[in-house]
């Protein structure tokens, strides 16, 4: 517990932490400020008209129009109301509070990058400053040092990414209240938005931990980020594109599935029968979670073993 307190103080004192928080807040304010500037608040009559149309479309959806007669509801939804809340959207050209969950999913890339940067920085700082030796002369149990720091990295990543997403949601609510529309809210918007934030933060934490363990292997922040982004861009982005068989094992794909809750599907090969072929699930949400956890645990184990064995010179 003492070591964890020390790690918190060390992490809190790093410049990267306030820089990421303040930078994130500035980005949110500028981004949503620009959106607010170009948005126009619809008139009451436009809203009323859209409301009427929306209600009509919603009722049609409830009657089964969009899912079709006797067709099963997609596994992502628990009821026909859920399907309609997602499928029926108001026909209104305005910023709408109801889109906050979708926007949070689309901004997840930035949040995850922020997590990776945080993990690499907190993991690499001691090597860059040559203070790892000093730390180990105070706490020679390397496993404890490694795991405690991983815990600190994880907790910081969760806290900072959740805070920034909450800040985004609050500023977005303000913008929609002033320059957009705060009606047409689906029934579970609050819960769904919170769940999306938690999933995005969980993935940002996974990337932070991967960046941290890479920094411990490469003994620097730069090497961690270089290897991580090199792998993600060159391997997962380019090479994996030529081999669809590995798509179900890729880190980024898994993170996308976890956040969006939409499985990766593919068409069956050589389908020649009548009708529409049943798609094959390459990666569902459960498998995506497993893939992410495996990446973190395997890389973590490799990093821990080499940290335990290598000399600190």
């Amino acid at each position: 517990m003492r070591l964890l307190r020390s790690e918190f103080l060390r992490a809190r004192s790093r410049r990267v932490v306030p820089m990421l928080v303040v930078g994130g807040l500035i980005g949110i304010v500028i981004g949503l400020g620009i959106a607010a500037f170009y948005a126009h608040k619809p008139s009451a009559a436009q809203v009323a008209s859209a409301q009427a149309q929306f209600q009509a479309d919603y009722q049609r959806c409830l009657s089964g129009k969009y899912v079709g007669v006797n067709q099963a509801i997609d596994a992502r939804y628990s009821s026909i109301e859920d399907v309609c809340s997602s499928a029926v959207t108001p026909d209104l050209d305005a910023i709408m509070l109801r889109d906050v969950e979708q926007i949070l999913q689309h901004t997840a890339t930035f949040v995850i990058l922020l997590g990776a940067l945080l993990g690499a920085s907190l993991g690499g700082a001691d090597w860059t400053s040559d203070t790892m030796g000093t730390l180990l002369t105070w706490e020679p149990r390397r496993v404890r040092v490694f795991l405690t720091r991983a815990l600190a990295v994880g907790l910081f990543a969760i806290a900072i990414t959740l805070f920034l997403q909450l800040a985004f949601a609050v500023v977005f609510w303000l913008v929609t209240a002033l320059r957009g529309v705060t009606t047409f809210l689906p029934p579970h918007l609050f819960g769904d938005t919170l769940a999306t934030m938690l999933r995005v933060s969980a993935m940002a934490t996974a990337f932070a931990l991967v960046a941290y363990v890479l920094a411990m292997i490469g003994r620097s922040t730069v090497s961690s980020l270089g290897v991580l982004f090199g792998y993600l861009i060159l391997f997962e982005g380019v090479i994996a594109g030529f081999r669809q068989s590995v798509e179900g094992s890729l880190f980024v794909r898994a993170a996308i599935v976890v956040i969006s809750r939409e499985p990766i599907l593919t068409e069956p090969r050589g389908f020649s029968g009548p009708g529409v072929p049943e798609p094959i699930v390459v990666m569902d949400v459960t498998k995506a979670w497993v893939v992410v956890v495996i990446y973190v645990l395997v890389l973590g184990a490799v990093s821990l073993v080499q940290f335990q064995r290598r000399d600190v010179t």
Partner: peptide, 15 residues
């Protein structure tokens, strides 16, 4: 070896 951007006191506090 100390963190150069931290104060002397903060370095000692961490340890």
């Amino acid at each position: 070896a100390m963190f150069p951007r931290f104060s002397g006191r903060r370095n000692l506090e961490i340890l």
